[in-house]
Write a protein that binds this DNA or RNA. Structure first.
Length: 486
RNA sequence: GGCGGGUUGGCGGAGAGGUUACGCAGCGGAUUGCAAAUCCGUGUAGACCGGUUCGAUUCCGGUACCCGCCUCCA
């Protein structure tokens, strides 16, 4: 069995991964708040943890991994959109409009992440479906003196768990108060106390609870859903590094205090942020774009995925146009190379061990480059089917080079136009070849060169050899220009 | 102010205490009427200053700079 090593944010060390139960390896990833289209930054953890999911399935068996990724569908931004729609005259109650907004966003999320080749998680719980579990957990925390009610709110008392609070993010309660950027509310015992439950007025979605009609705070949902679906102790909990504090810290506090016999997550994994042309992608900087924006611009999901995997998950990654181009060229080449590959190959052990080494995705890609190079250098007939299948299987561990009909369809984009232009291309190829033969006799190549230049200008790659002329339409092939040359 | 991360060749980006990362670009060559494509070859880079060591880009300490978190955020 391949040993997997992962960098645990809790210990800040790379550790050998040993699942609590090899028959059921359990992983939780903080999913999106479903208030709008997922931006590119949202896609990074999805792709990173998808690779981990694939690796775990490869090592422990596809039926022995449980992957939970939640949807946060209690959020003021969802409410705001619903309210705006209602004010604009939309049909239905506010509650219905809120639900419709979440449903719509979840559908988009599935479409967009699917386009990136992300496998569906085992469970995708919605916060609104786990309200009773949250209420029960909050009540339990009050019973255990880790939480208290104040002015319709229920707050977690950080002072009740000073020994554990702040361990993940490496800060003490004292340090944080010194920073003094916490929301000061008169009803808080300690300024660091955070909300488990808050009251809802008539305009806001709410549920009945022992503390009145209200809604859960942001952090409690993950604790409740992780407990419900994965148990008191599970293996891996992941998310973006910006969630480390306060979200994950608060999750730990809630879960460890509610279930003192459990260990909650054993390994914490955090991906670094995504940058765009050197700057963090954020709302306030206004430089963010969605996955859908890229897909609509014609960037294939597989290419987006490959770019995201080009940088180790614990390093900030910069999205640039140049990387997009390189990724597209590489994948195009590899797809041509594996056009006749079949399912059932065995992933290359070096690719597996690169991934098993704290998800070294670029290390794995490097190995793929080497294998691809070796295959390319051979004569077609010398390449065995197994060799090709294994290469494809290796790439598929990263989630690329899968399923030619969907993920790989982009490679043949424009195929229809090219097919239609083929007779014309053949005619030009013959003409160019004959012109060239004549030119070799006459030593006058002007006619050859001008036709070649015109073809190149129409977006056609011209390959001349002794045997003949090959005309290959490239991505910016313009059939109209070719037509005009007739 | 507190906490954390980073700094590698033209660009991107890894691993390893001593032996070629890898990709792209570049350069030289083969090939070509010229090209394209392809093939062959080609790069001692590791922010700075110390320390440990036979030997460090890799370990330890410090300095500088950059980035993130501390507020909704993947």
């Amino acid at each position: 069995m391949t040993p997997i090593r992962l960098t645990n944010s809790m210990t800040r060390k790379k550790e050998l991964f040993e699942p609590l139960d090899r028959q059921n390896v359990r992983m939780y990833l903080c999913g999106p708040t479903v208030y709008d289209r997922a931006h590119l930054g949202n896609a990074r953890p999805v792709v990173v943890f998808d690779v981990l999911f694939r690796l775990l399935r490869h090592v422990y068996g596809a039926d022995h991994v449980t992957y939970v990724r939640n949807f946060t569908d209690v959020d003021d931004r969802i409410n705001a959109t619903a309210l705006a729609r209602k004010e604009a005259g939309a049909e239905g109650t506010l509650e219905e409009l809120i639900h419709a907004r979440s449903d719509e966003t979840i559908r988009w999320y599935h479409e967009d992440m699917g386009a990136l080749g992300a496998l569906p998680p085992t469970h995708e719980p919605r916060a609104t479906e786990y309200i009773p579990q949250m209420v029960a957990m909050i009540a339990d925390l009050i019973d255990k003196d880790h939480a208290y009610e104040a002015e319709g709110h229920v707050l977690f008392a950080v002072d009740s768990w000073r020994e554990g609070y702040g361990k993940l993010s490496g800060r003490s309660v004292e340090d944080m108060i010194a920073g003094a950027r916490v929301e000061v509310a008169p009803y808080k015992r300690n300024p660091m106390d955070f909300v488990l439950w808050k009251p809802s007025d008539a305009e806001l979605p709410g549920w009945e609870s022992p503390w009145g009609r209200g809604r859960p705070g942001w952090h409690i949902e993950c604790s409740a859903m992780a407990h419900e679906l994965l148990g008191e102790s599970f293996d891996i909990h992941g998310g973006g590094s910006d969630l480390m504090f306060p979200h994950h810290e608060n999750e730990i506090a809630q879960s460890c205090c509610a279930y003192p016999h459990g260990s909650f997550a054993k390994v914490w994994l955090h991906n670094e942020m995504l940058m765009v042309e050197g700057r963090k992608m954020s709302k306030s900087l206004g430089n963010f774009f969605t996955v859908r924006d890229l897909l609509d611009q014609g960037v294939p999901g597989e290419v987006i995925r490959f770019v995201l995997l080009g940088t180790h998950y614990r390093k900030p990654m910069d999205w640039t146009e140049k990387k997009r181009e390189e990724a597209e060229a590489t994948l195009r080449k590899w797809r041509e190379l594996t056009a006749s590959a079949q399912a059932g190959g065995t992933p290359n052990p070096r690719v597996v061990s690169a991934l098993a080494d704290d998800l070294n995705t670029w290390g794995a890609i490097s190995v793929l480059h080497e294998i691809a190079g070796a295959i390319e250098r051979k004569q077609r007939s010398d390449v065995s089917q197994a060799e090709m299948d294994d290469f494809a299987a290796s790439a598929q561990l990263l989630g690329v080079l899968e399923d030619n009909s969907t993920m790989g369809a982009w490679v043949s984009d424009g195929a229809v136009e090219r097919l239609a232009a083929q007779p014309l291309l053949d005619a030009f190829a013959t003409r160019l070849f004959q012109l060239r033969l004549a030119a070799i006799e006459s030593k006058d190549f002007t006619a050859v060169d001008s036709l070649k230049a015109a073809l190149t200008d129409a977006g056609i790659e011209v390959r001349i050899s002794k045997e003949g002329v090959e005309l290959l339409p490239s991505t910016d092939f313009d059939p109209a220009k070719l037509e005009a040359l007739k």
